[in-house]
C-alpha cells in the first residue's frame, strides 16, 4: 500500500510541469524515504533527477517500494483540474496497476478524485557519479530563465564560461553575437537575489539553448538555481525544493567543432 498526502499539492503539479517537455512516459519510484524520478529524454542528452522527501508530506506510507508508470501528458491534463490551494492525495495498491489521485479543498469543500491507469515502463537507470565540480554557481532562477530565453534570438548554442570575471553566457548566430555576464553579487539583503561563484578553475562548455529552456520550466519550484560545471562533463542545473528535495537536470555538452 502506498499513500501520500501533500498539503501544498501545487508542488507536485510544478514538478510534473518541470519535466513534461523532456519525457513522455516516466516511472515515479516510491520508497519509505521519498518519491523519486530518474529519466532521460529520448535523445539521451539530458537527464532529469527528482527527489521529494517523505518529510514534505503530511502523511506518507509506503509498505513496499514500487514504481508508478505514468504518461505525463495524461497526468498533466488531470493536474490542470487541481486548484492552487488544493491538498493532493496519492494512493496505490502494491500491485500498482492504477493510481488514485484526490484534490481536496477545505475552503470550497470540494473533493475531486481520479483513477489513472498505470503502465509498465522499462527504464534504463544511469549511474550518475557523485563528482566534485570545478565551478559551482548559485543565482536567481528567474535571472537564469531570462538569460537563456533572451539568448535564443542570437543562436541555438549557448557557451557558458566561468572565469574570474564571472559567469558568461554567449550565443552566436547569423545576426551576430550576444554575451551576458553575471558577476558575483551578494549586496542584496535577500539571499535569493545573490549570485555566488565558487570557482576552482575556469570552465567553458557549449550547450543547446533548446534544452536549457526546457529546464527553466522548473523556475516556479525555486527562487534560486545552482549550476555546476567541470571540463568535458555534463552540466548540472539544480532547483532545490526548500529543504525537501530537488529537481536536477544533467545536460551533455556539445562537442567542439
Amino acid at each position: 500500500m502506498f499513500e501520500a498526502r501533500l498539503a501544498n499539492g501545487n508542488i507536485f503539479k510544478m514538478i510534473v510541469e518541470s519535466i513534461r517537455e523532456l519525457v513522455v512516459d516516466v516511472n515515479i519510484d516510491c520508497s519509505t524515504e521519498e518519491l523519486s524520478i530518474q529519466c532521460m529524454d529520448s535523445a539521451h542528452v539530458a537527464l532529469v533527477s527528482m527527489s521529494l522527501s517523505q518529510s514534505a508530506f503530511d502523511h506518507f506510507r509506503c509498505d513496499r517500494s514500487l514504481s508508478l508508470g505514468l504518461n505525463l501528458p495524461n497526468v498533466s491534463k488531470i493536474f490542470k483540474m487541481m486548484g492552487r490551494d488544493d491538498t493532493m492525495v496519492l494512493k496505490a495498491e502494491d500491485s500498482a496497476d492504477k493510481l488514485m489521485l484526490m484534490f481536496e479543498n477545505d475552503k470550497s469543500g470540494t473533493i475531486a478524485d481520479f483513477e489513472l491507469k498505470l503502465m509498465a515502463i522499462e527504464a534504463e537507470q544511469l549511474g550518475v557519479p557523485d563528482t566534485a565540480y570545478k565551478c559551482s554557481i548559485s543565482m536567481p532562477s528567474s535571472e537564469f530563465q531570462r538569460i537563456v530565453r533572451d539568448l535564443q534570438v542570437m543562436g541555438d548554442t549557448c557557451k557558458i564560461s566561468c572565469t574570474k570575471e564571472g559567469l558568461k553566457f554567449s550565443a552566436t548566430g547569423q545576426i551576430g553575437t550576444g554575451n551576458i555576464l553575471m558577476r558575483q553579487n551578494v549586496a542584496s539583503e535577500k539571499e535569493e537575489d545573490h549570485v555566488t561563484i565558487d570557482m576552482e578553475e575556469p570552465v567553458e562548455l557549449n550547450f543547446a539553448l533548446r534544452y536549457l529552456n526546457f529546464f527553466t520550466k522548473a523556475t516556479p519550484l525555486s527562487p534560486t538555481v545552482i549550476l555546476k560545471m567541470s571540463p568535458g562533463l555534463p552540466i548540472v542545473i539544480e532547483y532545490p525544493i526548500e529543504q525537501l528535495g530537488h529537481v536536477k537536470y544533467y545536460l551533455a555538452p556539445k562537442m567542439e567543432e
Partner: peptide, 14 residues
C-alpha cells in the same frame, strides 16, 4: 553544426 554528446558516454547504464 556541432553535435551534442550522449549522456550514456558519461554515466553509463547501471
Amino acid at each position: 553544426q556541432n553535435r551534442q554528446y550522449n549522456l550514456d558516454a558519461f554515466f553509463g547504464l547501471k
